[in-house]
Write a protein that binds this DNA or RNA. Structure first.
Length: 603
RNA sequence: GCUCCCGUGGAGUAACAGGCUAACUCGUCGCUCUUUCACAGCGGAGAUUGCGGGUUCGAACCCCGUCGGGAGUACCA
């Protein structure tokens, strides 16, 4: 009895487990390059799915034909692949719940749209876009906001206000129509968001959103609910910008009778621009003033209220007071039109969610991969092109809105999967911090395997027109990885290993080359030329021994040596440099360098 | 305007369901190491947890108010 009971419970738990295996989707629309925030959404979806042995799905939301950008879908796929976020179901890979492009599911949305009308949850609306725009303008002139809702739908042209015959006539005549959701009155729609807890919406305040557009395509709201239901999505993990429309989505599940299989929601915090105080200072105010000024006039090309110089003064004054920015930017009743325009512009460029323009202005990538837009100003660089290790970027992104609750910061993808949970996602906006991003990359570089780094270095060195064997590259990687932020920094920094054609830091050379030590320095070159064992260890013995014997200063000998051999005063251990260069090259460079330094000194 | 969300040192976050001197990372400053540069190690400065009330022996945490910021408010997603 006891046994059967416990095994029954076990089976029960097991079947629950199967039921709970999450199916999550990343659902971008192919309207351009995938923003870094989108990558983070994809990452969290992936992590959650993998943690629980679930399924990670890519669905392309291309219901807006006017905004479709060729190449965008490829960009998305390539970006996810670069990040190592493997898809279980996707347009390319297929799956049991396809097609995975909404444009290819068009027919079913139409059916569900009409079902809404039939069961009383929707209605036909015949108002044209132009009519509604006019209405909006009219209301705005009165200082009010137009909304298609319970209050206004009875005075508009729709199947609620027209007779059945009229409606039929219009439909038969193939008149353009949309189907709108008829939001019920006096209800409280509530969700239990995994990140935010209970969130409530009053149905009275929800507008009658368009579900089916006049071109027969669904809007996001209809398509996402219909697809999530049919693709058996268990958790909707998406950006916070969707939170306000979630009430509509719940209503839709209700309208279709799917409320019991409604997915759980998790709304991710926004990724915010870097805090102005983190990059603004007294030294660079003028640079940023000019940047903002240019952007301001680009945006307000017809701005005639004040001269450019007056606007510059206004912007500069506000930026200078960086600790009180939000107070300075508040719009006061006495502010005139020009001041309001300037304040409004600064507010939107200084605060809010991270945008492409922030990347341009502040000098960091905001997209995973580079993108070539139609116009030159639409082109931008990516984390990949700047030289990021994809895992460093992923690691950085993972912490933008989530933390493991431990002090560990460096995670592999597998470790992230293991540590991740939706419960530990924060609610407040996550600020983009490029310094931190660079730090992550540096950590990956430092802890990277030398052979791996060497193989990454190879093409980079080649693209400079240089070459080196694998052993040299591996040693260069070892010596330079803790001195660089990006692997791409290394070839230039270590150029003297790849070419004899490098410049001397002449100012430094002049300072370090002392006439009184010249003879001894030349003598050491001779000793090195006769040294059999050219290993770093032995060189250290030989050189240090020579210095001590002759009672010279270390700096007197090692500094000129270093500059003659590498051109610069900094870098890895001098003995390692000499050993890697080899005797022939080292001695040759020393002779040439010392002659040059003497000439410099005499000039 | 309205709706929803958020508010912890310069930046990012922590503090599990109110309980020691608010912790960690980045950045910054100093020291040690290396007679270089970095890495690393050690240490310092920096927060009356947006503000004001309230509940409580005790509040970053709960309640009310207030201010600030963000998102949404399209036949875009």
């Amino acid at each position: 009895m006891f046994h059967t009971e416990s095994s029954f419970i076990l089976i029960f738990i097991e079947s629950l487990n199967i039921m709970q295996k999450p199916r999550v989707r990343f659902a971008p629309s192919p309207t351009g390059a995938l923003h870094i925030g989108g990558v983070r959404t994809a990452l969290y979806n992936y992590l959650y799915a993998k943690k629980l042995g679930g399924t990670f799905i890519l669905r392309i939301e291309d219901t807006d034909q006017t905004r479709y950008v060729p190449g965008a879908e490829d960009y998305i796929t390539e970006a996810l692949a670069w990040c190592g976020l493997e898809l279980d179901e996707s347009p390319a890979k297929g799956g049991d719940y396809g097609p995975y492009r909404q444009s290819e599911r068009k027919d079913m949305y139409g059916d569900f749209g009409h079902q809404l009308v039939r069961n009383g949850w929707g209605y036909y609306a015949f108002d044209t876009a132009e009519e509604l725009d006019a209405k909006r303008e009219e209301m705005e002139a009165k200082g009010e906001k137009f909304s298609y809702n319970a209050l206004t739908r009875n005075s508009l042209r729709n199947s609620l206000t027209m007779s059945d015959a009229e409606v039929k006539e219009l439909l038969d005549a193939n008149a353009d129509f949309t189907i709108r959701l008829k939001c019920p009155a006096d209800e409280i729609v509530s969700i239990n968001d995994i990140v935010r807890g209970k969130v409530e919406f009053q149905s009275n305040l929800l507008d009658d959103k368009v579900m089916l557009k006049s071109d027969g395509m669904p809007t996001y709201h209809l398509a996402n609910v219909v697809d999530d239901y049919h693709m058996k999505i268990t958790h909707v993990i998406r950006g916070e910008e969707w939170l306000p429309s979630t009430g509509h989505h719940v209503l839709l599940y209700r309208a279709f009778g799917w409320e019991n299989s409604m997915p759980q929601f998790a709304h991710l915090p926004l990724i915010l621009k870097p805090a102005p105080s983190s990059y603004l200072n007294n030294k660079n105010v003028d640079i940023y003033t000019d940047k903002f000024l240019e952007e301001f006039f680009k945006k307000h090309s017809d701005f005639t209220l004040k001269t450019k110089d007056q606007v510059r003064q206004a912007i500069r004054g506000i930026l200078l007071d960086k600790d009180n920015l939000s107070a300075r930017l508040q719009i006061k009743p006495k502010d005139k039109e020009d001041k309001i325009a300037i304040k409004g512009f600064l507010k939107s460029t200084l605060f809010g969610k991270l945008s492409k323009r922030d990347g341009d202005r502040l000098g960091f990538p905001v997209f995973p991969l580079a993108w070539q837009g139609e116009k030159p100003e639409d082109a931008f660089t990516g984390f990949r092109e700047v030289g990021f290790d994809p895992m460093a970027m992923i690691n950085f992104l993972a912490f933008l809105g989530w933390n493991p609750g431990t002090e560990q910061e460096i995670f592999s993808l597998e470790q992230l999967v293991e540590a991740f949970s939706l419960e530990r996602i924060g609610k407040s906006g996550a600020r983009f911090d490029y310094e931190k991003a660079k730090w992550f990359n540096q950590q990956y570089l430092i802890h990277g395997n030398n052979a791996d780094l060497a193989s990454q270095l190879k093409p980079l060195v080649a693209s400079e027109g240089w070459s080196a064997d694998d052993a040299t590259l591996e040693k260069v990687a070892e010596l330079y990885k803790q001195r660089a932020t990006f692997i791409g920094d290394i070839p230039q920094a270590a150029s003297y290993f790849f070419t004899d054609d490098f410049n001397y830091d002449e100012k430094n050379a002049k300072k370090k080359w002392k006439e009184k030590n010249a003879e001894k320095n030349h003598e050491l070159v001779g000793i090195l030329a006769d040294t059999e064992d050219f290993s770093a260890d032995n060189l250290e013995k030989v050189i240090k021994g020579f210095i001590e014997e002759n009672e010279l200063g270390f700096g007197d000998v090692m500094a000129p040596l270093r500059i003659a051999v590498s051109g610069v005063g900094g870098g890895p251990s001098l003995f390692e440099i000499l050993a890697l260069l080899g005797k022939e090259k080292s001695v040759g460079r020393l002779k040439k360098g010392y002659a040059h330094f003497e000439a410099l000194k005499n000039a």
